[in-house]
Structures are given as C-alpha cells and as structure tokens.
Design a protein around this nucleic acid. Sequence first.
DNA 1: TGTACATCAGTGAACGCGCGTTCACTGATGTAC
DNA 2: TGTACATCAGTGAACGCGCGTTCACTGATGTAC
Lengths: 175, 175
Amino acid sequence: VRKIAYHHGDLRRAILDAAVEAIGEDGPGGWSLRELARRAGVSHAAPAHHFGDKTGVLTALATEGFELLAGALEEQEDFLEAGLAYVRFAVEHPVHFTVMFQPSLYRAEDPGLTAARGRAGSVLRKGAPQEQTALAGWSIAHGFASLWLSGAMAHAPGADAVRRARPVLRRLVEH
Amino acid sequence: VRKIAYHHGDLRRAILDAAVEAIGEDGPGGWSLRELARRAGVSHAAPAHHFGDKTGVLTALATEGFELLAGALEEQEDFLEAGLAYVRFAVEHPVHFTVMFQPSLYRAEDPGLTAARGRAGSVLRKGAPQEQTALAGWSIAHGFASLWLSGAMAHAPGADAVRRARPVLRRLVEH
DNA sequence: TGTACATCAGTGAACGCGCGTTCACTGATGTAC
DNA sequence: TGTACATCAGTGAACGCGCGTTCACTGATGTAC
C-alpha cells in the first residue's frame, strides 16, 4: 500500500500505465484524460500538466513503444531470431504495438517520436542481407503479430505466439 | 446535381460513404454520428435509423470489407497473385482494411459480420498447399499492406504498392 | 384511374451528460544563506 | 540545523460545447380496393 502524498512521485508513469490499461480494455478510442486521472487516482486536471492533451499521451506511448522495440531487436544477432523478437515485443506490449502503427492517433512529427522511430528503423534494416529481404522479414513478422493480436488468426487463449511464429517465419528464411 | 427529396433514396450507403471519408481524414476515432449526418446532408438523428449507434456503422463497414476481400481473393488462382490481390484490396479500401482488423471497434459477434469474415477466411485458406504456408502467405501480405498503409514503410506519394509488393512476396514463394 | 390508409424515412426541438479547458488556489519540494 | 523564499505538482470549482438519445411530428411511398 502506497502512502498517498500531495505530490504523486511519478504521475507521468502512472498516467501512461493507466492509458495502457484503458486502451487494453476498450481500444485506442475508448478513454478520456479524465478517465486516466480517475484510474491514477488524481484530480481530473492533472494529466494535462504532463501531456497537454490526449494526443500527447498517445505520442508518449508510441515513443516508448519504438524505444522498447529498438531495444528488443538490438539484442538479436540472427535474422530469424530478430523476427521472433519482433513478434514477442508485439504480444508483450500489445497496446504500444497497436498505437505505434496508427500514426493518425499521435503526433508523428514529434522530435522524440521520430528519433525513437528512426532508431527502431535502423536496427530493423541492419539485420538483413538485402533491402528486399529486410522488407519481407519485417512484413511477415509484422503481419503475423498483427493478425495474432487482432484475433483474426485463430489461437487458444494461452497459446504461445512466438512458438507458433517460428515455423511460419522459417518458411521465409529457408532458401 | 441530385434533387433533394424528403426520402434520401439510399441514406444507408451515403452514411457508410461519409464514414469512410471521415475515418480516412481523422482515423477510426475522429467522428460522430452527428458528423456523418452533416456530411450526408441529413438531420442529426437520421443515422440512428439505419445503424443504431457508432458501433453499428463500424460493424457494417467491417462486414462490407470482408465481403469485398473475399470477392477479390476468389478471383485468384495463383498463390502469389492472391497475396498481391490482398495487398491491392488494402490500398484500394484502406479504411475498410483498417477497421476490419480492429475488432475492438465493432461487434465481432454480429451474425452478418461473422458470415462475411468466415467467407473471407475460407477463401484465404483454400489457395495454399499447407496450413503453415497459408499462414506465412497471409502474414507477409497482411504485414506488407499494414506497414504500407500506416506509413511505416517509406514510399513516394504515388507509388504502386502492388508493384512494390511483388518481389517481396516472391521471396516467400521461391523455394 | 382514383381514393383511403398504413407504413416507413427523415425532421427538429429538447434533454442530460461527460468532456476538455481555464484559473485561482494549496501543499510539497528544493535551494540559498 | 534553521529560516525564507521560489518553484513546481496537483486541486477543485466553473465554463461552454458537442455528443447520443428521445419523441412527437411530417412528408413520401406503397398497397388495397
């Protein structure tokens, strides 16, 4: 049990977590700044101090997502493993993933965001022998992850996406 | 110039078109029933007659999307061509495509929707020799289309997605 | 062809609600001396 | 260690607005005879 102080300590973090929670439950459109305040247990005007508006929250979320993705991919040496790391990132951070690839939701020109996106992009390109191969690998990993998360690709509730992705991604690598 | 009558003629169609337009401009969250009414030139309460609520509009849009996709895929004989038809569908109907794969936006259990989705799904599965291959083909086509539409995959404004997709999808087929 | 009537699509005024935003404020923290 | 003061994070009341929804209505269409 946390002691409730006048100053929250890390309200910025708490609001982002609340956003992830809310979006996870109701989708990227099903929340308001006031609801995030409610979830974080602060007054309704507090979120504006840190993010300005809804778009600010989503921009922060997308930026965080690209940074997490870049970090996850940087650790990989192998092309196939990088693809699987991409899928793992998506299932571990489904809300970030969903927001990141819907630029209509956030400020795509935000400097922090473009930097993070650029970093993720350069890591993505680095792993493949040719540009065409990189594109194919990115497409198949991204497609698998998207279809999995959207529920379009049927799977049992507790199923392991990465394990199921391996033989699928391998079809591209086997040449 | 159309004569304006008390009865619209095909208001259902007009509202769906308005929704496509609005979502294309501001994303899946940037509109209201009242705005669709404004765009269609009818009173603000009219859309509810046909769709009930916002979710009803999106459910209709997703249903229409799955029907269009099934139709586009049915015409294809070849596995690679089916993948390219998938990409073509996505770039020709970007709003439908975007909505279809965000089930949090609509009523995923709607009978008309599940029927259309089932039809598209069975056409998808039919084209491939094995289940794993179908999954890989679906993933790469879906991923390419998603990345293209989201702007994550850099491309010139007038570039032809299907033409660019061909060599990428071919990497999967060449075995 | 003409009349009566039922049905249906769309209207427009009214409502209550949650929202984002503003703003004077209060309480906590950090720094200077 | 103690005091004064500046800064900053969060408060809470107030506002105006667009929204979805309701409902009695009106105009157009279709059908029976």
